[in-house]
Each structure stands twice: as C-alpha cells, then as structure tokens.
C-alpha cells in the first residue's frame, strides 16, 4: 500500500457518521487511487464475511440471582434517617408560627391554633362578673357587721362614762359631760367612716390581686376557665 490515506479511508468507509460531502470526497479519492480502491474492495469482502456470523443460542447457565438486599433501598433508608431531624424541626417551627396551644382539662386534651377564640373571652368575662358580685356581697356583709359592732361598743362606752360622772359629781356636771360625749361620739363616727374606707381600699387591693392571678392562670391553661 503506497497511499498514506488508505487506512483512514477504509475505516471511514465503515463509519456511518460521515456527512454526504465527506463520503463523496472519499469515493472521489478511491476512484482515482488504485491502492485505496483495492484495499476498500478487500475490506468490503472481509466485512461481509464477518457479518455472516449467526447469533448463537445461550447454553444453559446459572444466571446471577438478585440478593435479598437491594442496594438502592438501603440508600433510601439512610436518606430517610438523614431527613428525619429536619422534618421534626419543620413541625416544631410550624407549631410556633401557627401558635398551636395544647391544653388538658375536664373534657380531655384540646389543641388550639392561634389566639384564644371569642367564646373563651365571654366565658372569662362571665366568670369575672360572678366573682365580682360574690365579692361585693361579702364586702357589704362584712361592713354592716363591723358598723353594728362599733355602734354597740360606742353605746356601751357612753353609758359607762355617764354613769360614772353622775355617781361622782352630780347631775349638772353630767349634762356638760353629755355634750363632751356627743362630741366624742361624732369623732367616733368619723373614725368609723375612715376605718370603713380603709377596709374598702384593702379589700379592693386584694380583689385586684386575686383577679390578676386568676387571669394569669387562665392564660397559662390556654383560656380554660
């Protein structure tokens, strides 16, 4: 073979990727090059001889069996465990965003989303109003009892003083003393009113404290009265 293009030309002849222009140039060269034309002819014969191969049937053989542990499944199992912490984090973040409230009461466990609903506020107001009425009644009873006790004590004191003065100095002196006692009694009335006001202020303070504690407890328990 004298032509240096023969090997490439013969190989390219069997390459289906040649574009028409390349194939035309190849054929053109083979028409004018005796060496390449002969090599191409022999190569076609050899190629045709090779293509006479008849596919052989596969003899009986032991096909490799698939083991019971597929490789991809194990990779998926690892992937599931790797994603589990992220999934838990997402659930917790969602619970915070939606303000999920879980509480237990006499009717069992309850789950709420977002702020307390309107019916819970009404229940709270009703309970506070009942508590207020109960407090006012108890306070009124206490005040009346205190005033009656004070009046009884004052009357007893005045009688004791008058009896003592009449016994020692006579009736005229007793009249002057009655005026003094009247003044004293008016002062006691004022003291009593001041005392009543103090009791009222103290009771109001206690009531405000109790109400605040109760509201705080309801908030902690998720609005359950």
């Amino acid at each position: 073979m004298a032509c240096e293009r023969t090997a490439t030309l013969v190989a390219d002849h069997f390459d289906d990727t040649l574009v028409p222009l390349q194939r035309e140039a190849l054929d053109q060269h083979a028409r004018h090059c005796a060496d390449c034309a002969q090599a191409l002819d022999e190569a076609r014969q050899t190629h045709a001889h090779l293509r006479t191969w008849q596919p052989q049937r596969v003899p009986a053989w032991s096909r490799p069996a698939l083991p019971s542990a597929p490789q991809k499944r194990s990779r998926l199992r690892w992937a599931w465990w790797q994603w589990a912490p992220l999934a838990v984090s997402c659930v917790l973040a969602l619970a915070v965003v939606l303000n999920v409230q879980i509480s237990t009461g006499s009717q069992g466990m309850a789950i709420r989303f977002g702020a307390s609903s309107t019916p819970d506020t009404a229940q709270l107001e009703a309970r506070l109003a009942a508590f207020d009425a109960q407090y006012q009644a108890a306070l009124q009873t206490l005040t009346q009892t205190l005033m009656q006790q004070q009046a009884t004590d004052n009357a007893r004191l005045m009688e004791a003083v008058i009896d003592s003065v009449v016994e020692q100095f006579g009736d005229s002196t007793a009249r002057s003393l009655e005026q003094v006692i009247a003044y004293f009694e008016s002062q006691r009335e004022q003291d009593l009113q001041l005392l009543q006001a103090s009791y009222q202020q103290l009771a109001d303070s206690d009531y405000a404290t109790i109400r605040s504690v109760e509201q705080l407890a309801m908030l902690v328990q998720g609005g359950q009265p």
Partner: peptide, 28 residues
C-alpha cells in the same frame, strides 16, 4: 463509531482506525 471506540479504549480515533484497518487485512 470510531470516536466511541476511541473513548472506550482511551486511544485516539486515528489509532482506532489504524487498528481496524490492520485487523481487516489480517482477517483477509
């Protein structure tokens, strides 16, 4: 293709063509 053969065998396409031609001559 010779490009695919070259990639598979880690040789140049021209080397693959030369081997092919040499093999055909030997078979002939």
């Amino acid at each position: 293709t010779f490009e695919e053969i070259a990639e598979l065998q880690d040789i140049s396409a021209n080397t693959a063509k030369t081997r092919f031609y040499t093999a055909l001559r030997r078979l002939k």
